[in-house]
Design a protein around this nucleic acid. Structure first.
Lengths: 117, 117
DNA sequence: AGCAAACATTCCTATATAGGTATATATTGC
DNA sequence: GCAATATATACCTATATAGGAATGTTTGCT
């Protein structure tokens, strides 16, 4: 089998860089497809297709406003990712702490020796 | 073009459910391929291939221990995802707050009226 | 009704997998 | 060196896209 469908889950949906860009843009508020197209510099059909995927995993919602379609970011879907990845926070935190320790160590050594620059 | 390579970035790497499972297992500490294979119930070659992908995006590291290869989770790579998705936290937070407000509202109404139910 | 604007959808193509199966490589013990 | 264990890699196949181009479809205006 090939990779799982992008519409299967949120992780897959945001795996595509262009879609993350769309999400970034929508973070600023509702946007019409046309606005997204100009902002992204991507052909309109592609943008529409990415929006469709985001819509299917419910990362965005739409409403009509005259001839325009205003897409809106629905952040809750991202919470799932945040929760999963957040569980591992202690791991990189640990690393950062370890780095701090090393830096401190170097600093102390430097003060003590201060031989070569 | 098809989808971007899974080895291109961390987002793509974790888009695959099985790889997230591997990461979950490695959260418990170093594991050999064999241990992962039994835990996942997935054929060994597949597991090795998933590990290769995770290795290329540096989400894991390996060291040899006799005939075994012990894989270790390198959490820092996940920080990237956490940071990106974390920027949208206010959005679902907002929603939760809104929900709270609605619940409060209903509660108040219920107390005030207490007609049906 | 007729036309244009704003999007969505369809069709086609190239490609990157994910899984399955078989095989290669490395390490340990005898 | 040889067999066995533990992993990695190679090869093959089916499939889900992502992008490009063309065409539908809905809405607003006159």
């Amino acid at each position: 089998m090939a990779r799982a469908a992008t519409t299967s889950d949120v992780f897959n949906a945001v795996a595509e860089p262009r879609r993350r860009e769309v999400i970034d843009l929508l973070a600023g508020g509702e946007r019409s497809v046309g606005e997204l197209v100009s902002a992204l510099g991507t052909p309109q059909p592609q943008v529409s297709k990415h929006l469709r995927v985001l819509l299917e995993v419910e990362l965005v919602s739409v409403r009509r406003e005259g001839r325009h379609r205003l897409y809106r970011l629905e952040g809750q879907g991202l919470k799932q990712i945040h929760d999963w990845v957040g569980a591992f926070a202690p791991l990189w935190q640990e690393r950062l702490d370890a780095l701090d320790a090393v830096v401190q160590q170097l600093k102390t050594e430097e003060e003590g020796v201060s031989s070569d620059e």
